[in-house]
Design a protein around this nucleic acid. Structure first.
Lengths: 141, 141
DNA sequence: CAATAATTGCGACAGATTTGCAAAAATAAT
DNA sequence: ATTATTTTTGCAAATCTGTCGCAATTATTG
């Protein structure tokens, strides 16, 4: 996986440095991270500005993706660096569950792109609701 | 449509003021707007803080929705104020095309929620690619 | 109209993101 | 391996975004 990272950077004329590797590593965690979580998780080793720079570069090269999560956004590795998946988010406790591409979903998505003459490059599906636990907890009266 | 806005506000104990009406009006434009675009588009008449307040209120009442668009998020009217739809975004020129819910999409989405024990509340589908025009323009060498 | 409650505008702020530049690290060329 | 060259990083300062308190203004109620 680090190889693919190195290769992707090289091809674009950038090098795989320690800071970049660290940021990449921090994003390999299972759950998407807030920019702030990311910055603090590596702040001992890497400067804030450098984290931002790495994130900007990674996003530009399609290495990471941002997903909207209420008012905040989160970062996670893109499909090429982690299996393609989507998110199911609980509107109450905000837990995020990843799920695989539904069957035949590709057909639907490519059909949409095709009908507008687009060349499909990527897609994302976000589902929101209440998780089992939060359904139980009654709203505070 | 303004009636529905007024009604929605009233029911929640708020009034339909000129500033709010202006912000709502600005969002009725066909394309989703950046917070900054929104603020500047009405800055002659409305204070920045008030725009933020209106947006926060509208979002809380489900009148508007944020969609992620690359690094920025954008705002647009929610389903109740504009037909339910999704977005097809061009990765090069960033134009956004709205499209209707694909057939049987509900089944797929509710199936996902159900399989995780979630109560479905909402969903969003974003598709990215290259629009017809941008496929033609060759990348600048 | 008067009284009361909700909303705005403004200026000050706290947090988030960006930028300029010299020092440090990486890559290329002896 | 050592030096020259190019790319990155760290740091501090500057910007941009979104929020807050409070007095003035506008809307709602009787």
């Amino acid at each position: 996986m680090i190889d693919l990272l190195a290769q992707t950077l090289r091809e674009a004329g950038h090098s795989l440095t320690k800071p970049r590797m660290t940021v990449f590593g921090a994003l390999q965690a299972p759950k998407p991270k807030t920019m702030n979580q990311l910055v603090t998780s590596v702040s001992d080793i890497i400067n804030r500005a450098s984290v931002y720079r790495a994130v900007a570069l990674f996003e530009e090269l399609g290495i990471i993706t941002r997903i909207q999560h209420g008012w905040k956004y989160r970062l996670e590795l893109s499909d090429a660096f982690t299996p393609h998946h989507h998110h199911l988010t609980c509107n109450k406790c905000h837990r995020i569950i990843s799920f695989d591409e539904p069957d035949r979903f590709d057909e639907i998505v490519s059909g949409i792109a095709a009908s507008h003459g687009f060349v499909l490059q990527n897609h994302g599906l976000e589902v929101y609701g209440l998780c089992p636990e939060c359904q139980t907890k009654k709203a505070a009266t």
